[in-house]
């Protein structure tokens, strides 16, 4: 176009230009090669593709909103009890390496030998299966090898996952990202802030206060010896959530939902006041 013959062009390519004077658009080989009702890519087919793409995207977003991405506790290299687990699409390889004759003395066969042959064969499939026939049922060797490999991968993945579940049950643990999500949900339901696993366990403030001994006598049964919460919520940080008056009211009359009993018969008004002043200082 640019090197056409129109005399009003601003740029004219000179005769010895290396720019090839190609014709207009070259028809690609698949343009008319196939019988039947072919359809233009733009705009007809692309429009349909976009519609399918929108549906896929909406479905994907619904999934992502319903299921937050997992996050466990911060990496701790000294944690000896953690059960390692790769992402699900590596499980078949992970499980494969647990079998005899591909582990221990034979680990080379497990890491390089068999996976090397399998992935090598997959990569070089066009040079191994060179026949002209394309239909899978007329290529029994290639097709059956692929189906066998597929079945093996599915089997190994399922066994590996099953093994992982058994190990979790044996060690009586739940995956950390579940534990963390559960704890966060419980904390939010109690009206506390989301626990931050990076924060060191906060210490009680003014632990030498005389109110501490009252608290140790009366409160630790429900609120735990370190005041981190058990049946009742954590008292560490209670000053963030309540004022001194609110704390005093709850100690005197019990909590509104009746979960905490009233202490006006066990403690004097003076002791309650002392306790409330001290608890209101427990901020983080």
């Amino acid at each position: 176009m640019a090197h056409g013959h129109k005399s009003n062009e601003k740029v004219v390519f000179v005769g010895d230009s290396r720019v090839k004077k190609a014709g207009m658009f070259q028809t690609p080989p698949d343009y008319t090669a196939f019988p039947g009702k072919s359809e233009a890519f733009i705009p007809n087919f692309l429009l349909k593709e976009w519609m399918v793409g929108c549906v896929v995207l909406v479905g994907f977003l619904v999934w992502v909103i319903a299921e937050p991405a997992p996050l466990g506790y911060p990496a701790d290299p000294t944690n000896a009890s953690f059960i390692p687990m790769p992402d699900w699409y590596f499980l078949f390889l992970y499980q494969f390496l647990k079998y005899p004759y591909v582990s221990q003395d034979y680990v080379l066969l497990g890491t390089m030998g068999i996976p090397g042959i399998m992935f090598g064969a997959l990569m070089l499939a066009p040079f191994l299966d060179t026949g002209k026939e394309r239909r899978f049922y007329r290529r029994p060797i290639a097709s059956s090898l692929m189906l066998l490999t597929l079945a093996s991968c599915v089997y190994l993945t399922v066994v590996s996952w099953d093994h992982y579940q058994h190990m979790l049950a044996e060690n009586n643990t739940i995956p950390e990202h579940h534990e963390r999500a559960d704890k966060a949900r419980e904390a939010i339901e109690r009206g506390e802030p989301r626990p931050n696993p990076l924060k060191k366990a906060a210490a009680i403030i003014e632990a030498d206060d005389p109110a501490m001994s009252i608290a140790q006598a009366q409160c630790i049964g429900c609120h735990a010896a370190d005041f981190s919460g058990a049946v009742g919520p954590a008292l560490i940080g209670v000053g963030n959530r309540m004022t001194q008056e609110e704390i005093a009211a709850i100690i005197t009359n019990g909590s509104e939902n009746g979960a905490m009993p009233h202490f006006n018969d066990k403690l004097s008004a003076e002791e309650i006041d002392q306790l409330a002043v001290w608890l209101a200082k427990q901020t983080q």
Partner: peptide, 19 residues
């Protein structure tokens, strides 16, 4: 006129999707 860009995108756009 300067870069002859039409063939670039025509090559992507103008193909048919077989049945």
């Amino acid at each position: 006129e300067r870069l002859d860009i039409t063939p670039l995108w025509r090559d992507v756009a103008d193909h048919e999707v077989p049945e």
